[in-house]
Computed example of a mutant assay.
Amino acid sequence: MNDTFSDSNQVRVVSDFSELINTSFQGIANAICWQRTLNGDFKEIVSKLQLKDNITEICTEDLLALQLSEKGQTAREIILNDLQLLTDSGASPSLNLLKNYQRDEEFDFISTDVYSFHVDRSPIATDTFLCTYYGAASDILPNKQAIQKILIPEIRKKLKELHSGQKDEFETFLKEYYFDLHYEAKPNANPINLGLGHIWRLAVDHPEQKVLPCIHRAPVENDGEYRLLLIC
């Protein structure tokens, strides 16, 4: 895994928020990273927040209500500033305290949950922003190191068996149920871990997109440890 990310042609590294939102995706670069080393005690924040469901959205009022040490206050100020920066840029950020995501156990031959490598799709021009403050961090994968699951012969065969409509409706069926968004890492693939504290901007599949969408996945959580994740 990369510590600086600069060795990957897939990643553009920037030094501030303005660069993060204003740098264009180009060529095979479909991930932009505002690389940061954060001060502050994010573990303290996690330990004092209340998990209400497996995924609990944390609002500004929840953060402000916490009694924190000086390092905990520093961490809180960073999170609040990140939320404000993204909101001011037109995004709709969400801060999540996360135990685990729901697993897709409907089919034994294909997984379509967020632990599977996948891309995001939108009908409008948008990007995905991610920042893990605490806990396990997500991975991205160069597009050439992955194959769409629907192109794997044994999976495609079973999907055709599952499809009950007309043959010419099969591709529409794959999109309607999001099967086409999921990928399998090729042998010897080298995922890039997104690390802690960095804000990432990932390319999304939308009509105006000029690069391939960024393939990513949620990590398997560390035992007994929650994640604190900003996402939009």
Rank of each mutant, 00 (worst) to 15 (best):
K43T: 08
I79T: 12
Y133T: 03
S122L: 02
S47V: 00
A125I: 02
N100Y: 11
A125G: 11
P153I: 05
L51V: 03
E161I: 05
I155E: 05
I45M: 12
Q73D: 15
K52T: 14
Q50E: 15
T112A: 12
F42H: 13
I110H: 04
Q145L: 05
Q73S: 14
D41Q: 08
P123I: 01
C131W: 01
G165M: 03
T126E: 06
L63A: 04
L68A: 14
G135K: 10
S116P: 02
N96G: 09
E77D: 14
K144Y: 14
D41C: 09
L83R: 07
G72V: 09
A91D: 05
R76C: 14
T56C: 13
L95S: 07
L130W: 01
S47F: 08
T60W: 04
R103I: 15
Q148I: 00
L97P: 04
L49N: 13
D139C: 03
L83N: 03
F129G: 03
D104Y: 03
T112N: 07
D113N: 04
A137F: 02
I140G: 12
I147W: 01
L49A: 12
A91H: 06
G40S: 12
S116K: 07
I58H: 04
I140M: 10
I78R: 07
K158G: 03
L64V: 10
A91F: 04
V119T: 14
G72S: 10
Y133L: 08
K71S: 14
I140T: 11
I79H: 11
I152N: 05
T74M: 09
Q73E: 15
L98W: 04
H118C: 05
E61Q: 15
S122M: 05
F42D: 15
D168H: 14
E106D: 13
Y133W: 04
V114N: 07
E57N: 14
A125Y: 00
Y115A: 04
L64I: 14
V119P: 11
E44I: 05
E105P: 00
L98A: 13
K158S: 03
Y101I: 02
R121T: 08
D168G: 02
P93W: 09
L151M: 08
S116Y: 02
L85E: 08
K167T: 10
S92N: 07
T126Q: 05
Q145G: 03
I124V: 15
I79N: 10
L95K: 06
L97F: 06
D108F: 07
T74G: 06
S47E: 15
A75P: 09
A125P: 05
N39T: 13
L98P: 00
S116I: 04
T128R: 13
S69F: 04
A136P: 02
L83K: 06
F42W: 11
D53F: 10
S138G: 02
N100G: 03
S122H: 10
T60F: 06
D104N: 06
N39Q: 13
N100H: 10
L85I: 04
E169G: 08
P93A: 08
E44A: 12
D127G: 01
